[in-house]
């Protein structure tokens, strides 16, 4: 089948090699770009993949990125997705991963706001002892819509999955999150857990959460949890003692989220998307503060 994406590509990482430079998928949402990427990570190989989707234009566009990864036996795959788009734009962000025996998949996602963003992640732990960590940090404000669907299917024996979502919603943002741990028949000895923590700041926020565990095997452990609320009174008292108002405290949480995104952006495109969104939300001075601290850390490391 021919891909519809203009820049579709296929990358193969040879067995037992370490690819030093990340595979970068940069999607300019201002241009409504669409990317379709397939990565075959052969046995024992290690690779980092970065998807950076961002734009600033007022023009309404639709963009998308589809990333498909096959991680063979013992492969190590790290996927970082940073998405921050204009308020009139919509972006569809999809990742599908199949992990064979002893493969390890790390998915780090940053949804940093913008019109409508749909994050779809499907991880199949097909092999025995395969592991997946999926972590999403999100921020949505204004009239942003964020729709997240995380699915981890644990098919092999003794597989382990951790799914964490952590976000902030402000103004009239709407978020729907479905997170599914599916312990398939035969996945004996597997453990899956999922947890979401949401801070709600805006009066008109709509937060929907549906954490699902499907369990068709007895010798497994499945857990999930969700906490939805605002800054707790104890935390507020602590911060008030230090001269911070509620607004100051909320701003601290937002700053921490963007700082994390900027610090952990593994290459220039992802970094630019995170900084641009930080500028929009927190102002240029704060955003470049983060940047300066990143630079300082890099200099020290050098």
């Amino acid at each position: 089948m021919t891909s519809q994406a203009a820049d579709a590509r296929y990358v193969e990482i040879p067995a037992h090699t370490v690819r030093e430079e990340p595979i970068v998928v940069a999607v300019d949402t201002d241009k409504g770009e669409v990317a379709d990427t397939g990565v075959m990570v052969r046995a024992g190989a290690t690779v980092s993949i970065v998807v950076a989707a961002g734009g600033t234009n007022a023009a309404a566009t639709t963009s998308a990125s589809l990333l498909r990864v096959i991680a063979e036996e013992g492969a190590n795959v790290t996927i970082t997705e940073v998405v921050g788009i204009g308020s009139s734009q919509q972006h569809l962000e999809s990742v599908g991963v199949d992990a064979d025996d002893d493969a390890h998949v790390e998915v780090r996602q940053y949804a940093l706001g913008g019109g409508t963003v749909a994050f779809g992640t499907a991880v199949s732990l097909s092999g025995d002892r395969a592991r997946a960590n999926v972590g999403l940090r999100y921020f949505a404000d204004g009239k942003d819509h964020l729709d997240v669907n995380h699915v981890v299917r644990q098919r092999g024996k003794n597989t382990i999955a951790h799914v964490r979502e952590n976000g902030i919603l402000d103004d009239a943002a709407e978020k729907a999150l479905r997170a599914t741990i599916d312990l398939v028949h035969g996945a004996r000895g597997s453990k899956g857990d999922e947890a979401e923590s949401v801070l709600v700041f805006g009066d008109d926020v709509v937060n929907k959460t549906v954490p699902v565990i499907l369990c068709d095997e007895d010798d497994v452990q499945g857990n999930h949890g969700a906490t939805i609320g605002t800054v707790g009174p104890e935390q507020m008292d602590y911060l008030a003692d230090r001269g911070l108002s509620r607004k100051d405290a909320e701003a601290l949480f937002v700053r921490a989220l963007f700082e994390d995104a900027i610090i952990n952006a593994p290459e220039a495109h992802a970094h630019d998307v995170a900084v641009r969104q930080a500028e929009r939300v927190l102002g240029a001075e704060v955003a470049h503060d983060f940047d300066a601290s990143v630079q300082l850390a890099e200099d020290e490391e050098a």
Partner: peptide
């Protein structure tokens, strides 16, 4: 036993910033 099945499908829809909602679920043998 391993021929049975158990699913949990909780949904939360929160539209007030001062609300506090917590959910936890475990499945095991």
């Amino acid at each position: 036993d391993n021929i049975s099945r158990s699913d949990t499908i909780p949904a939360m829809d929160v539209r007030n910033p001062t609300a506090s909602v917590g959910h936890e679920a475990t499945i095991g043998r």
